[in-house]
């Protein structure tokens, strides 16, 4: 069973690469919300001074808020899902797994809020000239499709994991 010194060094090398990849992804999120969003905000202010269009301003601010929520949410989501802590007491690890693999999370409401801001941004942004009705049809359609795909993926990939976790938790907690 012994992994020799070379194997271990290779393994550690791979793990370090994985850590570096995580650091890069994390840095990308930082770039989005510390550089790109303020830059877009500045452009919005500049556009307002030129056009004096309040609808355009509200639309742009909605885009900014939406991008900020997405960036913050996915950063947090990525940190949470990056590594599972296997050093927790078994029951705690199982409870975390059962919670992680729930089909719906209250915190996902933030994604919906971000989508609504984007929706408002698209409707209010006069430079895009989109029809409000068409935007709603596409948005609702995309949301329903995303939910259906998400539920199918959850059922195939994660439901079994969650059911197993719940059954082992029940067994551990049985007096």
């Amino acid at each position: 069973m012994n992994l020799n010194r070379n194997n271990i060094e290779q393994l550690v090398g791979k793990l370090k690469t994985e850590d570096a990849r995580y650091a890069r992804i994390s840095r990308s999120f930082q770039i989005i919300y510390w550089i790109l969003i303020p830059v877009y905000l500045l452009l919005t202010i500049e556009s307002l001074t030129e056009t004096k269009d309040i609808n355009q301003l509200i639309g742009d601010v909605c885009f900014i808020i939406s991008s900020l929520i997405f960036a913050l949410f996915f950063d947090k989501y990525y940190k949470e899902y990056k590594y599972v802590d296997y050093a927790l007491p078994t029951i705690q690890m199982l409870k975390n797994a059962a919670n992680r693999y729930k089909p719906f999370h209250i915190k996902n409401i933030w994604v919906l809020i971000a989508v609504l801001f984007m929706d408002a941004g698209l409707c209010l942004n006069s430079s895009l000239n989109f029809s409000v009705v068409k935007v709603q049809i596409y948005f609702i359609g995309a949301l329903i499709l995303a939910c259906i795909i998400g539920l199918i993926v959850w059922r195939i990939k994660y439901k079994g994991i969650r059911d197993n976790a719940l059954s082992v938790i029940a067994e551990i907690e049985r007096e």
Partner: peptide
Amino acid sequence: WKSLDNFRGDSAISTWVYRVAVNTSLSF
């Protein structure tokens, strides 16, 4: 490796290693 960043030394290292090993065996 993945859990090492969270090791605070609250438990003996042997207990910590057993936890990782047992939890891995239960890994889904």
